[in-house]
Design a protein around this nucleic acid. Sequence first.
DNA 1: TTCTGTGCAAATCTTTTGCATGGCA
DNA 2: TGCCATGCAAAAGATTTGCACAGAA
Lengths: 132, 132
Amino acid sequence: MKSYKMLLEESNLKITPQRLAILKELDKKGHASIEEIYENIKEMFPSISLATIYKNINALKEENVINEVCLHQKPKFEITKEPHAHFICKKCGKIEDVEFSKVIDKEIEKYYPNSQKELYIYGICKDCSGNS
Amino acid sequence: MKSYKMLLEESNLKITPQRLAILKELDKKGHASIEEIYENIKEMFPSISLATIYKNINALKEENVINEVCLHQKPKFEITKEPHAHFICKKCGKIEDVEFSKVIDKEIEKYYPNSQKELYIYGICKDCSGNS
DNA sequence: TTCTGTGCAAATCTTTTGCATGGCA
DNA sequence: TGCCATGCAAAAGATTTGCACAGAA
């Protein structure tokens, strides 16, 4: 993988020790929450502030250096029904139920047998594609 | 579908106008956020409190009458890399990268051609299955 | 030297809790 | 009637913002 420094150089963000520390932490853990990042960086870097983590995470996301794993939509609820997949529009947040294909079910079953499955497909819905 | 009243009778929750209104709203919209539920119910029911919505949503979730669609884990981040699927443990919240199967890719492509796809599989990981 | 990033504190937003009252069974 | 649910207000938690100072280019 590219060095952390290089990742920043390719974005519009200045290189700072705080940003390097955040990237290092994410790289080490694979995935981490704001709180986890904060707690771990604080040990090496006692003066770092939570606000700095938030600002940098948002900036890095903006620049597409990092990714949000659980796409942070407001939680939504539905009446419990048959298993089905959800298509969630990344732009407008609209949720559509989609049929849970047998093919997909079998394929996941292959990797995670007997595991409870919930499937979300994040994409851009018809209404939003076009008006980028 | 069962009547809203019946859904509540089968749970351990008392039937109240507020709960019926919440279920009706979810049924009408398919999926709704706390805020949406609140705003809409308030029109018919001006005295209802946001805290009541929260309490009831949590109670209904507990009783499995309703479902949370975007499983509410803390948002997590990762350094941007090749597309891959995520397996997220519903108990401990641990995230594992899993290979994004060509089969699944093709299957989704069939329904949502040219759409950006992100795939999350929620289940119970090996460490957590067993210690229910 | 310039301009962006940092850290603090305050503001804002979201969610939970405690408690007195009201209403379902 | 007994007990759970409601509504209010306060508390707690999460995230954002403003501003003065520090540090990267």
